[in-house]
Every structure is written in structure tokens, then in C-alpha cells.
């Protein structure tokens, strides 16, 4: 009841899904996929969002209760969540409303800035790679520098061949390495899916009884 039935659901349902990928039959494509699985998965999915919200709420509440390091900032999490939710539920999601104002003037600039910060950390990572002085690190850095310079006007001014070299790097060695990795990932993904389908891999069920 606690582990066997969920396991059976995955195995039996999984094989129906395998059938779905091969068979164009009405029972599989229409009755199983369109009438059963899609509406059922849509109807159960909003509660997964609720699970995430509850998890974050519990984490921040525990942080405040225990007065863990930097606990005061957890109040900002609650403030952001409550204000945004009230704005969305109270005034709707249309453009020009409070929710979109919050999105455009706080969420969007903050997340864009957060990602732009990575430019500095990647530059420092490149510096560390250069200091490693191994032939592999040098090749990596040379390829990176060529690709970067080819995208800015100064690179083209330095050498008119740079865009062509960059394109060759992207089209030939880069493609070969990405294809080799993609094949490995594909084989690994299929092997893992098969392990789950046959009930060998059960870690998704969690620990306990």
C-alpha cells in the first residue's frame, strides 16, 4: 500500500505510455492521453505549487523562530510574497495593474541584474583557468576568447578572419563535442528511464516504509 501500489502505478502506467509512443489507436491517443492523462495531470498540478510555497514558508518560519543567522531578512520574503499575491488576487494580472507594476519594476530588474552579476564571476573563473596553465585550460580559454571577440566590433577590427574562425569553432569541434555528449546523455537518459520503468530505480519514492 505504501510503496508497492505507487510502484505498480509507475510500471503499468509507464508501459501504457510506451504504447502511446508507438500506437496510433483511438483508445491510447484519445481515451488515455487526451481524455484521461492530460486533464488529470492539469488538475493535480496546481497543488505541487502549493507544496513549494508551504515548503518555503516552513523554512522561513523556522528560521525566524530559531533566530538563525540573517533571520531578519526572512520578513522580506514574506512581505514580497504577500504584497505580490494581494496585488495579483485583488487587481488581476492585466498590464498596468499593480501586479505587473511589481513585476516590471522589481522582479524583472532584480533577476536581470542577478544574471548580469555572473559576468563578473565568469571573468574571475576565466582568470583562474588561465592561471592553471595547463594545455587544456589554454585551449578552452583561446576558444572562448575567439568566440567572444568575434561577436564584438573590436574583434573584427583586430582581424577580419576572426568571425570565420569563430564560426568554424562553433560548427566543427564544438558540434562534434556537443554531439558526443548528447549521445552519451541520450543513452544515460534512456537507461535511467528503463530502470524507473522496470522498478529497479525507486529513489523518487523517497525513504521510509
Amino acid at each position: 500500500m505504501k510503496k508497492t501500489i505507487p510502484l505498480l502505478i509507475v510500471i503499468v502506467g509507464g508501459f501504457i505510455w510506451v504504447l502511446w509512443a508507438f500506437s496510433p489507436h483511438y483508445y491510447i491517443q484519445e481515451d488515455f492521453y487526451n481524455k484521461f492523462y492530460l486533464p488529470w495531470s492539469y488538475a493535480s498540478s496546481p497543488f505541487a505549487m502549493l507544496l513549494g510555497i508551504m515548503s518555503l514558508f516552513m523554512m522561513h518560519t523556522a528560521k525566524i523562530r530559531r533566530k538563525a543567522p540573517k533571520w531578519q531578512f526572512s520578513y522580506f520574503f514574506f512581505a514580497g510574497f504577500v504584497i505580490t499575491s494581494v496585488a495579483g488576487f485583488g487587481w488581476g494580472t492585466q498590464k498596468g495593474g499593480p501586479l505587473m507594476w511589481i513585476f516590471e519594476n522589481t522582479q524583472m530588474p532584480m533577476s536581470a541584474t542577478m544574471f548580469s552579476l555572473l559576468a563578473f564571476y565568469m571573468a574571475s573563473a576565466a582568470y583562474k583557468a588561465f592561471r592553471a596553465r595547463s594545455p587544456e585550460a589554454t585551449v578552452l580559454l583561446v576558444a572562448a576568447v575567439v568566440v567572444m571577440l568575434a561577436q564584438v566590433p573590436i574583434g573584427v577590427k583586430m582581424s577580419k578572419h576572426l568571425p570565420a574562425i569563430s564560426q568554424w569553432i562553433l560548427d566543427v569541434p564544438n558540434l562534434a563535442s556537443k554531439r558526443g555528449i548528447a549521445l552519451g546523455v541520450g543513452l544515460g537518459g534512456v537507461a535511467t528511464s528503463l530502470k524507473i520503468l522496470l522498478g529497479i530505480e525507486r529513489s523518487y519514492l523517497g525513504g521510509g516504509d
Partner: peptide, 30 residues
Amino acid sequence: SWLSRYPIAFSMMAVGAGVPMGIHAGILVQ
């Protein structure tokens, strides 16, 4: 907490489609 395994199992069913589709997209096309 074992009850939460049921919705997880329901969503994990779709892994069955991952086998043929993974072979197609990840291996055969490449």
C-alpha cells in the same frame, strides 16, 4: 508522508514515453 507517493507516481508514469522518445531524440537523430 507515504500518501505523497501517489501523485509523484502518477506524474512519473510519463517516464514510459521517455524511453522511445529519448531513443529517438537523444540517440537516433544524433
